[in-house]
Design a protein around this nucleic acid. Structure first.
Lengths: 154, 154
DNA sequence: GCCAGATGCATGTATATACATGCTTCACGC
DNA sequence: GCGTGAAGCATGTATATACATGCATCTGGC
């Protein structure tokens, strides 16, 4: 019989275990660029969405606003991202700097190599199937979150 | 057409996004016990494996040794876990305290409720299928890790 | 106009995670 | 017996993540 690694029964525990293992591989791959995979993902998203407010990124990442704020601060310190004034003066206009664009292009090669290797190992179809299931799980979890937070809790 | 949440194409990014969302639900569920889902998972694993060395837990969790060490320190401070001498005097014999056992029993009810709710939402069969795929991915990632580390890198 | 509540961010604190490094102890060849 | 390298942990540092909270600004009702 196949591997049967000792993945927890817990949905969350299983996800966390696999995520730890996979993150290590991607972080290793990105190391030559001096970026973590999380940072690369954020840069890439900013580039794709264009200059945006933090709130847009938060929605898109399903992450806490404070998590994003700290990540952005690091990228700003490294000169890869700029937080410019926004027409809504509460908000910031978040965009890549020129150096951020260059770093992203450099890092994208590393990411692509890691991604292709990973997808090659598990199989293209397998990854499509898994991503679809992950997407469904995200939808369920996001709906639960929205149900728990807005009314009643505060 | 269905949800089509904006999950990244990146294997790692997709996993991290879903893991964040799911972790929030489980952490919320565990809050009445004063435990995070990670801590519950660790307590549960120690209970199931019996008194063990840290190395056994590290293998089982696919986590770094330092990650585990810090998690154990917190549980020890809370009186839930004990690090007793081991026959191999380099190692520690890690085991639950009596209070740790009680806390685990209390927390297990909360976990079970969250788990049943989550599995109910996505469907039992769906979860089995996803867990199998996650298991396969873990196997691949773990093999890659082993291939990258032991020889060549240091 | 003006104020109450909502919205958008930032900061303080705490845990989760990993890398580099160092200390202790063990196992093994000689 | 005695090094020498390996194994098992702990600590320093850095990022990832989230909760509680606070400040500035905006929006709608009056």
């Amino acid at each position: 019989m196949p591997s049967a690694e000792e993945l927890p029964q817990c949905v969350c525990g299983a996800l966390r275990t696999v995520t730890r293992a996979v993150t290590q591989l991607y972080d290793d791959a990105m190391r030559p660029a001096g970026l973590r995979i999380t940072q690369y993902g954020l840069l890439s998203r900013i580039a794709r969405l264009g200059p945006v407010s933090a709130a847009v990124l938060v929605d898109s990442l399903h992450a806490d606003q404070t998590t994003l704020a700290r990540a952005l601060k690091l990228l700003e310190q490294d000169g890869l991202v700029r937080r410019a004034p926004h027409s809504d003066r509460r908000a910031k206009r978040i965009e890549l700097t020129a150096e951020g664009g260059r770093k992203l292009a450099e890092a994208r090669k590393l990411w692509l190599a890691a991604q292709q290797r990973m997808v090659g190992l598990i199989g293209e179809a397998e990854w499509r199937a898994m991503r679809g299931r992950l997407n469904g799980l995200l939808g369920v979890a996001a709906k639960e979150s929205r149900a728990a937070k807005p009314r009643g809790s505060p």
